[in-house]
Every structure is written in C-alpha cells, then in structure tokens.
Amino acid sequence: MDLLASQLINGLHVGSIYALIALGYTMVYGIIKLINFAHGDIIMVGAYTAVITLVSLNWSPVAALIAAIVVCVLLGLTIERVAYKPLRSSPRISSLITAIGVSMLLQNAALLLFGAQPRPFPIVLKVEPLRFGGLQISFITLLTLGVTALLMISLQTFVHNSKPGKAMRAASEDYATAQLMGINVNNIISLTFAIGSALAAIGAYLYVMAYPAVSPTMGSLPGLKAFIAAVLGGIGIIPGAMLGAFVLGIAESLAKAYISSQMSDAVVYFILILVLLFKPTGLMGKPSGEKV
C-alpha cells in the first residue's frame, strides 16, 4: 500500500513538472494555433541560465531563478518577434516547421557554447524527506506540486478575471474580431509568449532541482511529454493541460513500477491513442462545432 502511494507521489511529481511546461504549449496554441516546439528548449536555456548564475557568478538561488525567468521571457519574446510573427498569415505548416527550426537552433547553439557533457546543478535546498507514517515524501516533490498548483490557479484567475486575460480569451476565440474590437492582438500574443516562457523557466528550475543535470538536449524529452500532456488534456485549455500532465505522470510511474520500464512509454502513448479515439479534442476538450 505504501509502495503504491509512493509510486503515485512519484507520478504526481513528474506530472507537475510536465504540467508547468504544458501550460506554455497550451497557451500559445490556444491563441495562435501554433505548436511551439521550441518551448522545450526554452527550458534548457532556463536551466543553463540558472546553473551559470549559480555556479560561475555565485548568485543566490532566488537571484538565479529570477535571472532564468528574465532570460527565458526575453528569449520567448525574441523568438516570437523574429521567427513566428512574420509567418502569422502564412500556412500553419510553415510556422510549425519554423518552430522545429528554432528548437534545433537553440539546441545546437547550446551544444556549441557549452559542449555535450552535462553540467551538474548545485544543491540549492537541502531538506530531509518528510515522513507521514510509513510514507516518505521528498521536499522537492512537495515544493514542485505546491508551486505548480499555485501557478495554475493564478494563471486561471488571470485569464478569466483580468483585462489582458479577457483579451487573450477573445483573441483565442476569434483573432480578427478581437482586433476589430480594439484589442492590440500583437501585444496579447507577446504577453502569452512571455508568460509561457516564464512558466518554462520556473519549470526548468524545479526540473533541475529534482534531476540535477543540465545538457543541451535536456529539454526535448520533457518538452515532448508536456506536449502530449497538453493534447491529452485538450490543447488550448489551461486546466486540461494540468489534468493531462498528471494523468501522464501517474500512468508513466505506475507502468514503470508494475508493468516494465521499457513498456512505460508504450503504455502512455496507448492511453493517448485511446483517449483521442473516443475524445478527439482531449479529456477536457469540448466538441468543436463547425465554424461557418
């Protein structure tokens, strides 16, 4: 019983990191219908920023986190301006290919700058695991879960109650009409990228705290898994990304523990296929009506 509980907690931990990343995918997709494949590599940039400021510049952990957020936000904004904005009116496939190109560019630039050898992430927080009866939970797991839940709630409140949030939803519903209603859609899209990248930076920090190795390709796998989580939950829907990520994390963990490590990805993708067969718009997606 304790074993099952521990494995569920492991799954929740992985899931909450996927969730933070998935939020970035889902927000961008919700508004400009672009799958931003470079999102995973923004995580890598955030992790490198954190490790360099912490180790080489000797900054405090909080300063390093802020640095990572700032660098990721600037990077996200630049990518949007340089690579995606000029293609906004071109076919969607062009933007998609460009996104893959940006991802490759970031990975190879990091390979050139930092080399292939992974860098260890220093210990920023040393707290003994907490015990609840026979159950043992690491502090990083609790922290990750807490931060993710908090950010998701704030994001949901922001999108539903604030003015820029309403503008975001308007732009996601109908891009052209929102523009006609006096919403500066360009700024809204930039804001979306900024928020998504900031979340990626926080995700990166929590990720390397749990898995203390920073390497140029570190972002691709969590990026891919988060993307799948976003699709599973219903891409474009914020609580959906969160739900999808938790389902994915727990499924992965339980498959590894009770079926086999080699089969865990197969199990996860099988779940994805099943869900999409019966609910093509994802777990929380609403059936899309034909637009006339």
Binding site: S6, Q7, E252, S253, A257, S260, S261
Partner: peptide, 20 residues
C-alpha cells in the same frame, strides 16, 4: 532488478521499488 530506458532522467519509480 530494475531497468530503465535509454535517456531516462527520472529513476524515482525504480528506486522506490528497490527501496521497498
């Protein structure tokens, strides 16, 4: 005897089983 796949970064599931 727990195995992991290539490129995995998360070993907590296997380690939890081992710990048990």
């Amino acid at each position: 005897a727990e195995s992991a796949a290539f490129g995995d970064t998360d070993y907590k599931t296997q380690l939890t089983t081992i710990m048990n």
